[in-house]
Amino acid sequence: MGPGAMSVALDADARQAAAAKLAEEQALVRKAQAGDRLAFDDLVRRYDRDVLRLALNLVHRPEDARDIYQESFLKAYRNLPRFRFECSFYTWLYRIVTNVALDHLRRRTSRHEDQAPVYAEDDGGTHDFFDRQPQTSAAANPEKRLLGQQLGRHIAEAMKRLSPRERIVFEMKHHHGLRLRAIGDLLGTSEDTVKNSLFRATRKLRESLDAFR
């Protein structure tokens, strides 16, 4: 068997595995639609880490991220009987999450209360969420750790300069690996509009973080 034949065989296996996974997920969704709470819990466990990561990197505050997480899954639970399998459950769920997150970001923008995510620490200083994230590479070196904390704050500030849509597009493209067409589907907009949003987001971040490259 040559390399080409092996590649085709692997592709076929991957397709079969994906089809089996999709069928299993659809069965779970149907059970959940019939009122099986355990099935819905299973669906939550499959995607809730991604949902929370998206929320966290969009709003940078654990409390807000928890709100988005909870509101998204509650909406999914309430609207699950209306899910018609016209797209994957993942796409349908992410559509809910992006809508909830966009609403949340817009509300925050209109309130003009930002959000500097501060936490009281034992040393009396104020540190944002990024300060609390594990920086394993710099953990052994206090100087690098401090530099990492400063960089984290700058990244958070840079992200705040993005519009809600730009932030979501950038996050979904670069950290969730979604194609631009899929992002457009989720946001209910065209691929070109998503490209423009990504272009603007990249340029703003480049400008803001130029000194750290």
Binding site: R37, F40, D41, V44, D48, R49, L52, R53, L56, N57, H60, P62, A65, R66, Y69, Q70, F73, L74, Y77, F129, F130, Q133, P134, G148, L151, G152, I155, H174, H175, T202, L205, R206, L209, F212, R213
Partner: peptide, 29 residues
């Protein structure tokens, strides 16, 4: 390099936050 920098500092939810969110969601459901 910019994307690598952002990826390096990308936040991953810690287990405590995820567990807390799951517990809250259970109650809400």
């Amino acid at each position: 390099a910019l994307l690598a920098l952002l990826a390096e500092h990308h936040s991953e939810p810690d287990a405590t936050l995820l567990a807390s969110c799951r517990a809250s969601l259970e109650d809400a459901l």
